[in-house]
Simulated assay, not measured.
Amino acid sequence: MRPMRPTTPPWEVLLLISHFLQPKTLARASCVCKSWREVFSSDHLWRPICLASYPCSSHLLVSGLSPYHLFYLFFSASKRRYNHPSPLYLSLNQLFFAVEVFNGEETLVSVLKPGEEAVSKDDCMFRFGIDLTADNVALIGGTGELTVGWMVVMKGVDGAFAMMEREGKGRTVGGDQTKIWFNEKLPVPGCCKGLMHDGTGIEAEMVVEVGEGDNGMKMLERVGLGLMSGCRYVALEDGLRYLQYFLLDNEKMGTGTR
C-alpha cells in the first residue's frame, strides 16, 4: 500500500499550537505559506505578545498598526541598542555647515553656519535648520530650477565632506510649492553599517522652505538639513560617527587603518 501523503493540519489546530510557541518561532512559521501566515500573524495572537514585551506599544496599537509588525519594529530597535558603536571623536563645535541654493546659474544663498548654532537645543537627531529670512531672497521665475549644495567643513579647514552636490532639481510633495525636497545617497563605510535599517542606505536631505513676502513674491525662508536612514533621521551621535570617518584621520581617532 502507498503511504498516505501528509495533509495540512486544519487552521484550528495551528491556532491551538500557536499559543505554545515563542515569538521567534511564530515569526518563522508565518513565512511557511499564505494560510500559515494568516494564522501565525493574526492580530489577536500578537497583540498580547506585543503588550507583554513592550508595554509602551499600547499607545501605537490604538492607531490601527499591526501588532505583528509593531513587535518586529520594537524588537529590531532593541537589538540595535546593544550594538557597540565606535567611539565618538567628533563634535558639532568642530563643524561648519556650508549651504548654497541656486536658481539656474544664479547663486541665491551662500551661508556658513557653525554646527552648534544650527541644531535645535531640544533635538537629539541629526537634523538642523537655518533661517534665511534675514537674507530677503526673492525667487524670480518660480522654484522649478532650484538646485542646492551642502558641505560639512571642519573648523580650521582640516577636512571637508560633500553631503550634497549641485546635481538634480528639487521635488515637491502633493503639489505643495512651499517646500522643495532634495535627497542624495551617500557612501556607507563598513564602520557605519549599524546606522542603517535593514536593506536601506544613508541619505542626505535638504528641504528649502518658501514663503510669500510683503510684495507678494516668493521668498526663501528656511533650509532644513538632515541625515536619514530609511524613513527616519539618524541620531545626532550616529551622524557625527558617520562624518568622522571622512573628516578625521586615523591618528586623531586613535585607530589603525579604516
Rank of each mutant, 00 (worst) to 15 (best):
N183T: 14
M253Q: 04
E237W: 10
L236F: 09
G141I: 05
V32I: 12
V32N: 02
R28L: 09
F161H: 05
G199A: 05
Y54I: 04
N183M: 10
M163E: 11
V101S: 02
G254P: 01
M219C: 06
D123Q: 11
Q22P: 13
A77W: 01
R28I: 05
S66L: 03
F74M: 11
S41F: 02
K34C: 05
G159C: 02
V62S: 06
C231F: 06
G254D: 02
I17M: 09
K155C: 12
F74T: 02
K34R: 13
R37H: 15
T8I: 14
G199S: 04
L14P: 04
T7A: 15
E116H: 14
L65T: 09
I180M: 04
V62H: 11
P87M: 03
D176P: 00
G199F: 03
C124F: 15
V207Y: 03
Y82A: 12
A138L: 08
R166I: 10
G156F: 03
E221F: 06
E105P: 00
E116W: 10
L227D: 01
P10T: 06
K252E: 12
K218P: 11
T255C: 11
E184T: 14
P114T: 12
M1K: 10
L15R: 14
E116K: 12
L88F: 03
D158S: 11
P6M: 14
T25W: 00
L227F: 06
K34E: 12
A77E: 12
L108Q: 03
F128L: 14
G211V: 05
V210E: 01
D122C: 12
V99R: 00
D238S: 12
M196W: 01
D238T: 07
M154L: 14
F20R: 08
D249M: 01
E251M: 12
L60C: 09
G256P: 05
G201A: 15
G64V: 01
G174D: 05
